[in-house]
């Protein structure tokens, strides 16, 4: 057993865990934050995307102990109180989800995309940038629309933008 300390959705958590525990297991099983999903075992689908110190990571491919001391935001921590994050609202408004299983990862990836690429995202950019997330239900059509609209709305809401260093 190893001890990890993380800030998850603004709350400090410390736990003794088996060192092989993945971040997604830690979130789902130890913290019962089941909004983060597991859709594959090869780091391909993006159902597990969370923000680690503000950047999107696949929590299925991240050891919890490796991120000791970091700050994690999951889908449960995205809204501020009752007010949905603009990207959440955009997914609802544009029917960017059907079964909802890929949705938390999609939304977390989308927010990260806006942080990296700005508020004005064209279809091509969105489609290319979304290549780490699989959705089997929507055919992506409405996800693309939702992300474009969510990006604009984040700009209007004055959400801080973190342009990628690259």
């Amino acid at each position: 057993m190893t001890t990890v300390s993380l800030t998850v959705n603004g709350r400090a958590v410390t736990a003794a865990i088996d060192p092989r525990t993945l971040l997604v297991q830690f979130l789902r099983e130890n913290l019962r934050l089941t909004g983060t999903h597991v859709g594959c075992d090869t780091s391909q689908c993006g159902a597990c995307v969370v923000h680690l110190d503000g950047k999107a990571v696949k929590s299925c491919t991240t050891l919890a102990v490796a991120v000791d001391g970091s700050s994690v935001t999951t889908i449960e921590g995205l809204a501020s109180g009752d007010a949905l994050h603009p990207m959440q609202e955009a997914f609802r408004e544009h029917h960017g989800l059907q079964c909802g299983f890929c949705t938390p990862g999609m939304i977390m990836s989308a927010v990260d995309m806006v942080n990296r690429r700005g508020h004005h995202l064209d279809e091509k950019t969105i489609r290319e940038d979304l290549d780490g997330n699989i959705c089997r239900c929507t055919g992506y059509h409405n996800i693309v629309k939702a992300i474009a609209a969510g990006a604009e709305a984040m700009g209007r809401a004055g959400a801080p933008l973190r342009q990628a260093a690259e």
């Binding site: 789902r28 999951t74 997914f91 939304i107």
Partner: peptide
């Protein structure tokens, strides 16, 4: 009509079988 079920899915509160313990 915008979907009634969406609120729980976009906020991570869907309840899938693997979420049940």
């Amino acid at each position: 009509v915008r979907r009634k079920e969406d609120h729980r899915f976009i906020t991570g509160q869907g309840r899938y079988t693997d979420d049940i313990n």
